[in-house]
Nucleic acid binder design. Sequence first.
DNA 1: GACATTTGACCCCC
DNA 2: GGGGGTCAAATGTC
Length: 253
Amino acid sequence: MDDTAATLATELDGLLAMARELEVRLEGDQGAPGTARELCAALAASVDRAMRLAGSSPRGGGDGEGNATGRASVSGRKAAAGKVRRQVRVASVTDAGPLNDGLSWRKYGQKDILGAPYPRAYFRCTHRHTQGCQATKQVQRAAADPLLFDVVYHGTHTCACAQAAAHQQSPASFGQEQQSPPAAAPEEIQWPATPPSFPSPPAGNVGDCYPSVCELDGGYGYGYAAGGGLGADMWFGSQLDEWFLNLSEVKNL
DNA sequence: GACATTTGACCCCC
DNA sequence: GGGGGTCAAATGTC
């Protein structure tokens, strides 16, 4: 079970980094509620303890990419297309769909994945042809929880809309090495209003969902709301929800 | 009419 | 040969 321990430690490591980053940010944010700070401190401490229990931090060791998507080894074709690859897990509050990361994605394919109960959807940047933006992403419902979506980003956005989106939502936020998805913006992945293949029923308005994201492979996370106007409290709320969601999932490993 | 989605087929890698 | 990723024609929506 080394893999399990390594995955657990990796995930917890990421959570810890996020908690500490959030703590730091709260430090400079006088408007932040004290309870949120306390929660963050408690969260960090809790994660730290969990990491000790998990064994060690695999930093620098494995690829730390997690295996939730059952991601097959990315073929040479794919590796050549996108050098940057990031995996995030998105929790959608409603069943409507996964996310809105502020970028323009166009769905170009969907496949049933062997052993996965849900198909995987393939998206690429809308501006692929007009601006040569090579960013792509894959979205798949988590087998364990249909409200969770595993999202794998490939490549980086080089289109103008990505830069605009990055501007809207202080990009200096979490991860220093963050490469692609800035957060927040009006519309974007419209999980098929009437999903032909995804078993879950449409929940009508995608704007109702405010997914939050935690990267599985290290130290970067972000949250956003489809409506765009997500206040700090709500952000913290959804972010913390997501952390605990991830933690409970990790516990089940 | 323009653009997005769907879906079967094709290509490539293991 | 099987599975995953992408292409492109058909179709739908605004």
